[in-house]
Design a binder for these strands. Structure first.
Lengths: 215, 215, 215, 215
DNA sequence: GATGAATGAGTCTTCATTCAT
DNA sequence: AATGAATGAAGACTCATTCAT
């Protein structure tokens, strides 16, 4: 399915970079509207108002644009989660802010998250990419649980990896249900609920006395 | 213009039922091996050792078999979650048993759950079917949370619907990660972790004194 | 297309004859409703409420029933045109009666005439059958023109064969337009018009004195 | 579900137009040789020496080429019947010239007329197209009959519409018998016969004194 | 570089006919 | 004799990708 992953043309000139970005945008918009499978290369080039040949001078294949888009999503997700968060409140406030940050980032790219799920079920290559995002996310959670255990806040009999997997999966699933499946979920109540479940699991007090731990 | 006869699933005879089941099994096995998209009708009929026409006398299309398989999955999932659970232990034991029951049912049909996710991302019709399963599952959780709140066990400021969505999503995601994505998760630790998170959220005591509430 | 025309099973027993006729009727009805091409053998056997196998024990193929039905049509057409006609009136009355007889016979079997035209354009074999009917019809006309010429009524410079072809074609086309294409034609006016054109061509007087010539 | 782009006849370039015409010619030739039903798209593309896809980038389906060919036939028929006719002779000469013009046009496109009849018996859409041609033809005849009646030449008790239907059908049937069915008809004798029948019906004198009426 | 016409392998689906029961 | 399940050849159509202009 994947083949030997020829790298798509780099496009040195600025004009080439623009064209490539334009195609990337078109591909994303069409994918988000029709889904990956129902999108034909013809749809993308029509949307970008270029010829078929142009598409293939920037990307090796339909899979290749998808790859590029997923790369962008991965990168954006990394950047988003690396953004600093206000530490002024207590640990629960901080946790809540972290969850809000995640939900915001997800909502903003909900269309591509839908495509990522499609791609995941279509090729092992894209599954790896998706797991890569998830592991990065879960790794940070695991570290924060370990930190809380070291401070004597979180119970020591909680397995950090499995708890991170459970809690992280919970948050991601909530985001998917809300922003991709458009389930009738109230954003604020859901954030409060997620924060509560998470806090109780790792033993965060309601008060603001405990020093914050960055997720 | 065309004749008016268009029947799939004609056979009421036992031979016809057998043939249909055989095709259904073949379809499931091939879907599980290759995924829905990479499966050709030719693969299914070859696996079932029948002619192309035979396939089309039991099913209207490739989509139609998928529909039938998903129907079976939905039905099986309903049945599984309706099975009685041992009530001899305390509430936590009971919750754990319920989670174990879910994980067992999921593991047993992991292949089809993978296909369900694929189908979900491919057609709105299958998405509805999947949400149907999930709502049934989440509805039961929501009711149990309400019951615990009425007994004064679960905190009243916990929104039952959103908590059910979060906790249910958490468990389903864990099952998916474990049995479909084959993430390196330890079954027992994960079950303990899920039980702990859930119990703490709804206020279940560690001891065995509280009367059980059926999920 | 036709192959070597194996004669379809003769059906010696009366039960067999009934079955065969029942199938023939079903085939005709379905052909008339759907047209030959859009009719599937499945439609015929469903209409006759018999199994596929039964069909093939009375007919060799789908073409074969069509052949049988066209044979019936040819035979019926021969019989109809051989029926005696009231000779009491003058020659024009007689001609008119003959045309009426033709139109009646055509109307009664309009559905099969439509099928005959379809079959004609589909296989040379059926074309021959159709021409056979037509030649029989035109031959009679030609003879009557010759007779009128011998009586000094019809002009001698009229070529009997070509006039018969023209006049016969005119009448057949009118029948087709009226009964198959359902063009908005008034039956009585059309019959009068055809009679007039024909009479003038062959010199029939308006009065009733000329002795009749049977077509 | 599918993309929204569905274009046939895209090419506005001269190359595209050429290709389309080449396919149209191939389709016509193959249809004329094998008949519409026995022609496969594969036959057409083989004859045109292009790939399958090329066919489908100019036409939506096998039906679609047929539609295009019939459109051409309709157009050509309109043009042909609109061509001026020599008025120097008497009314009979003029009528004869009109009939000759029709027969010439029919002979030239006999192959397509055969296909038109096939198409007619296959789909109501094509039947409409055929009737469209015929009505245009019969309408002109009807008008000329009315004109002759107004001049006191044609008998007033002749119904113009039904007479036009009868006479027009006669001529068309003669053309079909001659050029499509290849019946042993002598062209000149047939034209004389048709002219005679028609003339006598509408009362045209043999002499050249009556002023001509254009059909 | 850009274009879009051309390609053809790949799939689904139909239905006349056969034959085991 | 009757049945109807099974067959599989046949054919329409799609669309990612190539390449001549």
């Amino acid at each position: 399915m994947a083949g030997e992953t020829r790298m798509s043309q780099p496009a040195k000139t600025s004009r080439g970079r623009d064209r490539r970005n334009s195609l990337l945008d078109s591909a994303r918009e069409v994918f988000e509207e029709l889904g990956y499978f129902d999108t034909r290369v013809a749809d993308i080039v029509a949307h970008a108002k270029v010829g078929h040949g142009t598409f293939y001078s920037y990307f090796d294949s339909k899979d290749d644009v998808l790859r590029a888009l997923i790369d962008n999503l991965v990168e954006a997700t990394y950047s988003a989660s690396a953004m600093p968060i206000d530490h002024s409140g207590g640990p629960r406030d901080h946790l809540r802010a972290t969850i809000v940050q995640f939900m915001d980032a997800y909502r903003e790219r909900a269309g591509m998250h839908r495509i990522l799920v499609q791609a995941t079920s279509y090729s092992a290559e894209f599954l790896s990419r998706r797991l890569e995002i998830k592991e990065q996310f879960l790794g940070r959670i695991e570290q924060s649980i370990v930190a809380w255990q070291q401070r004597g806040v979180a119970p020591l009999d909680l397995d950090p990896f499995h708890a991170a997997t459970a809690l992280g999966g919970m948050v991601e699933d909530a985001a998917f249900a809300q922003y991709v499946l458009h389930q009738p979920i109230d954003e604020q109540i859901m954030i409060t609920t997620l924060t509560t479940i998470w806090s109780q699991t790792v033993g965060l007090p309601e008060s603001h006395s405990t020093p914050p731990v960055t997720i």
